[in-house]
Design a binder for these strands. Sequence first.
DNA 1: TCTATGATTGTCT
DNA 2: GACAATCATAGAT
Length: 206
Amino acid sequence: MEENWLDLPAAEVDLAARRLLGWRLAANGVTLRLTEVEAYSGLGEDPASHAHRGMTNRNAVMFGPAGFLYVYQIYGMHFCANIVCGEEGRAAAVLLRAGEVVEGLSVARERRPAARGDSDLAAGPAKLMQVLALDRSANGTSVIDGTGPLTVSAPADPPGVIEAGPRVGVTSAHDVAWRFWIAGDPTVSAYRRHSAKTRRRSVPDR
DNA sequence: TCTATGATTGTCT
DNA sequence: GACAATCATAGAT
C-alpha cells in the first residue's frame, strides 16, 4: 500500500492528486471512480489558486487540515469541489474534475438529463457535483470520517497509467502540469485550449 | 464535429 | 464593478 495522500505536505499536493485518482467518491446514493483531478497550492508559486493571494472568507477551508471539502460556486450557477490536502496552515487542495459512475447509475442519469452518454455524466467538475447532488452546504465537511455528505475510500485495484498535462481554464501558470487523469478513460474531459473568453465588452462607452 | 457565446451570482478590489 | 478552477446550446464548417 502506498503512502496515504492525507499525510503528504502541502508542497507535494501534486503527488496527493495523483494518489487520489481511482478513489471512490460516495454521496447521496451515487458512487464515482475518480478519473481526473487538478492540484492547486497557494504557496505563492500558483497564481491560479484561489489561495494565492492569501486567506479570505471563501478559501479559508483550504488552509485547514487535510481531508475536508472546499466547495465554491463558479459563474453564478455551478459548484466545484476540492479535497483539502497538506498540513494545517498551508493552502493546498485537489480539484475533483471527473469521474465514472460505478453505482447508482439510474439516479445519476436522472440528475443529468443533458448528458450525452454515461461517460458524460460526471465529465467535468460541475457535472460531477450535480451527479453527487452536492452543493455549497458540503463546504468544510469531512470526506474521511463519514460525518459529511461525501465519503472517499481507497480503490480495490490500482488506477493504471496516469497522464499529466496543463490545467483547464487557467491562463497563467500553464508551465506546471498539474492536471492528472487516468490514461484512456472515456470519462475524462477533453482539454480546452484558448477559449476566447477574454472578450468582454466592458466598455460602457455609451 | 468544432467553436463561440450566453447564463447568473458570490466574492474580492 | 468586474471577474470566475463551467456547461449547454446554437450556428458554422
